[in-house]
Design a protein around this nucleic acid. Sequence first.
DNA 1: AAGTGGTCTAGACCACTGT
DNA 2: CAGTGGTCTAGACCACTTA
Lengths: 247, 247
Amino acid sequence: MTGSASPLYMQIAARLESDIRLGILKAGDRVASERDLAETMGVSRMTARQAVRRLVDRGILEARAGQGSFVGASVIEQTLRSLTGFTEEMSQSGRKARSIVVSAETRQADAQCIAALSLPAQDRLVHRLVRIRLADGVPIARETTDIRASVTPGLLDLANFETASLYETLRGQFGLLPASAEQSLAASLANGEAARSLDIVDGAAVLKLTRLTYDSEGVPFEYVRSIYRGDAFAMRVALTIGDEKIQ
Amino acid sequence: MTGSASPLYMQIAARLESDIRLGILKAGDRVASERDLAETMGVSRMTARQAVRRLVDRGILEARAGQGSFVGASVIEQTLRSLTGFTEEMSQSGRKARSIVVSAETRQADAQCIAALSLPAQDRLVHRLVRIRLADGVPIARETTDIRASVTPGLLDLANFETASLYETLRGQFGLLPASAEQSLAASLANGEAARSLDIVDGAAVLKLTRLTYDSEGVPFEYVRSIYRGDAFAMRVALTIGDEKIQ
DNA sequence: AAGTGGTCTAGACCACTGT
DNA sequence: CAGTGGTCTAGACCACTTA
């Protein structure tokens, strides 16, 4: 195949996902059956099935026994907004974004990051950027961003991330675009370090956000862990159902 | 095997899950390897693996290559990809949803609700349902739901919302479908009443969720305010770019 | 009847982790 | 080194849907 290191089923999933994103496959369309997929890609059915399952798990496809697998109709719309970074988000809502870089280093990924990004043993260097995020001068969040170093060589020297947008830099310098993401939110209490960084008392309410960002081929390249001040931040999500034949 | 109708891998997953719930396996413990599991249960490794994978997908187990699979810290993850209610969400992740109805009454909407639903002066009656939400018997959230009474006459007498799904009832009895929603999440601290309802200490972390639900014609019909236990609940959001040309 | 996804088998090789 | 999860094969039977 492409000589790439990624497993066959991921390559197949990426290909399907790309077809969907390019509009070759549209919402509601049936994709090739697992058996067809296996034959045309030259793999066993189980491998083709694993590719399909990956997309079903992510809500991109919908499998119906006896019928086939279809491009999901009821996917969240919106979110170009949420798929932008903090800088873009703030400027859209008329606030001035600024960051204080706490640290910027290239290092070995920690266990959580390895698991999230599915990093193979020979590719575990990440650029870690720890920033305090400010909106109009008020600290809002403490954000730890890990980005695969192998796909973004020299990233940390390319811009001053006190003011520059990370996503802007990734796009401009590496052609790297966030295509999809999975985000997880949970409430928690500020511990010592986070509390100091955000200028809040110990035990104050904070929002913990974890985000895994995928490129256009479905490969995760960024893992973000953030702590937002509970009193200064609310996350808004807009949900839309594309097709309403849900029974 | 037992002659049961459910697939083998589900039976095995249920057994593992039961061991965790009974405390035989605790957070951080290693579970039997896939090969051991296959042998002791008399199935192939792929089947045992599928059982483990099911639990990994649900966040109950955590797999570490080269080491084994471990019991994870149990946090309920709600997926925001579909516009479903609590009952559907829980049953999809294999948990038993139940509710305790704290109150069910038809009343004048409060100011916040009037603003959210854009209620005109002559149409301000709402059905208010206050429920404690339980997953597998554990209280997870306290939810206050206001629904426009004018479009759902007699709603509160149509079903027992201790067990019935509200959305199911709206769909079946009134043909009312949630077509889109706006949801807002913020971190906060439990106050007296919420803390008692959820069986947590005062000052514990909670997730405040506000949701405005629209019907297929874009008219808001439901306003929900919820308080989720921060230690037992995480919200997951899948983000995708809608229609973007990625070069 | 033909095709589909769902399940299942009995093997295999790999890269990785511990000792 | 032996053990682990991750991947992959080449088959198989089932229940289901559509025609």
